[in-house]
Design a protein around this nucleic acid. Structure first.
Lengths: 239, 239
DNA sequence: TAGTGGTCTAGACCACGAG
DNA sequence: TCGTGGTCTAGACCACTAT
C-alpha cells in the first residue's frame, strides 16, 4: 500500500500546541516538551516542530530560551500587527475620490527642537512641507513634514505640487527603520480650520519618523479628524 | 588549514538582500532572483535563502508568489508591530504606583447593540464591569467592559474588587483572536469627571474584543486622558 | 558541563498559478 | 504546463545558559 502517511505540517503542530495551551493542558508558566519530544509526539521532524514553536514565540504566546526550554508566557502583552495605511490607498479603498493640496513648502534650518527630533545638530538643512489629503473633497489628513536634505537631497528639487511627500518619499527614499507615535489631541486653530473640524472635535495624530543608515530621513505629524479616522488591527493566532 | 568557511546565515542573506533593495539595485517592482539563484550567489543552501526571503516578505518589503517569483513591493503599507501594554505593567514600568478601583459590577443581558458586538442573540447573559486604573493616584485608564457569561461563566463568581477584569481574563480566559480599534474622541460627561480631564482634553480610546473558539468572550472600551497616553511602535528592518 | 534551542545542509516532493 | 515558492526530512554542529 502506498497511501502512505500524509506528512505533518508545521501548521498542524502550531494548531495542536496552541489548542493545548488554550485548553490549559499547559497553563501559563508551564514548561513545554522539548522540540525533539514534540516532534516525536506529532510524528514530524525536529525542524518542523522548531518552525511551529518559533512562529508561536513570535506572537508572544510562548517564550523560548536555550537550555531553559519553552514556556507558556505568563502575561502576554497585547501584541498587535498594526497597519498604518497609505493615505491615498486608504481613501480609495473606502471608495472615495482622493484629492491632494499643497499648502506650503520652504527650505529651513533645524532649530533646537527639530535638531533633537532629527538627531542632528541645530542648523541642519531641512525641507518643510505642509499639505492636505482629501476624500471626496473633505479633509482627511493634514500632513506637516520635515525632510532632512542631507539624507534626501533630491527632495530639494521636488516641488510637491502634484505628488505628496508621503508618496514621493516612499518611491525615492527607502528607509530601514520607522517609528510611530499615536496620540489624541485637541486641535490648534490651524488644524481646526484646515480639517474643518466640528466644535469640540479632537484630532487623531500619528507622528512618524523614518531612518536610513542611522540617520533620520523625515519626520511628520499626520493629523486626522477624530470623527472620520480609526486604526484597526485584527490578529488571529489560530490562523 | 582548517579555518574553513564560516557558514552563511539566513541573517546574512536577509541583510544582503535588504541592502540591495535599499541601494536600489532592485527598485520597487523589480523581480528578485529565485531562491536557488540567491542561494548560489550567497553560497548557502536553498533553505537558508528561503528563510531569509520568507522573513523579509513578512515585513512587507517584498512580495512572493509561486511561479511568479519574488518582487520588491511597490507600495508598502506601513506595517508596524504595535504592543498594547497591560495597564499595570505600563504604569509600573513608568515608575508609577499602580492603583485600581472598581466602580460598578452587575449582570445584564445583551441589548440589540451589544448583541451585534458580541455576534450573538439579544438577551445573552453578560457581566458588565466598570473600573478605573490609576498611576500614583491619578486616573490613567477608564475600563468599561462586558464579559459573555456563556463563554466565561467563571466570571460570574469573581467580584473584581481587587483584581481588574483585564488581569483576570488574561489568566482565566485565553483567547485565540483579538481586535483593536484605536480612535480619538471627545469625552462624555462621565469620562470627563472620572478621568479628571482638563478643559477641552480629548480621550484616546482603545476598543478591544477577544474571541475564543469563534465566540466573542469580552468587549471593552479603554479610554485614556490624551495628555497622559500614547502608543509607540518602532520597527527595525535591518535587525 | 550538559541539555535545549538555533541554525545549516542536501535532497526531495508538492501546490499554486502565470502564461 | 511547468517554473517558482512551500514545505518536510534526517543528520549535524553550534551557542547559550541553567545547574
Amino acid at each position: 500500500m502506498n497511501a502512505s502517511k500524509p506528512l505533518i505540517s508545521y501548521k498542524d503542530v502550531k494548531a495542536g500546541v496552541l489548542a493545548r495551551i488554550l485548553r490549559r493542558d499547559w497553563p501559563p508558566g508551564a514548561l513545554l516538551p522539548t522540540e525533539e519530544a514534540l516532534a516525536q509526539d506529532f510524528g514530524c521532524s525536529r525542524a518542523t516542530a522548531n518552525r511551529a514553536l518559533r512562529e508561536l514565540a513570535r506572537t508572544g504566546i510562548i517564550e523560548r530560551r536555550r537550555r531553559a526550554g519553552t514556556r507558556v508566557a505568563l502575561s502576554r502583552p497585547e501584541a498587535a500587527m498594526l497597519t498604518v495605511p497609505l493615505v491615498r490607498d486608504e481613501i480609495e479603498r473606502a471608495g472615495g475620490a482622493y484629492g491632494y493640496a499643497l499648502i506650503e513648502r520652504r527650505e529651513t534650518a533645524a532649530d533646537a527642537a527639530l535638531a533633537v527630533r532629527f538627531e542632528t545638530a541645530p542648523g541642519a538643512p531641512l525641507l518643510f512641507v505642509r499639505c492636505l489629503h482629501l476624500s471626496d473633497g473633505a479633509p482627511h489628513q493634514l500632513e506637516t513634514r520635515w525632510i532632512a536634505l542631507d539624507a534626501a537631497p533630491a527632495a530639494a528639487r521636488e516641488p510637491f505640487e502634484r505628488v505628496s511627500p508621503n508618496e514621493w518619499l516612499l518611491t525615492e527614499t527607502p528607509y530601514d527603520r520607522i517609528e510611530h507615535i499615536l496620540t489624541a489631541a485637541a486641535p490648534d486653530a490651524d488644524e481646526r480650520a484646515r480639517l474643518a473640524l466640528g466644535p469640540g472635535e479632537p484630532v487623531f495624530v500619528i507622528e512618524r519618523r523614518t531612518w536610513r543608515a542611522g540617520a533620520v530621513v523625515t519626520a511628520a505629524r499626520l493629523s486626522h479628524p477624530a470623527s472620520r479616522f480609526r486604526l484597526i488591527s485584527r490578529t488571529d493566532w489560530a490562523a
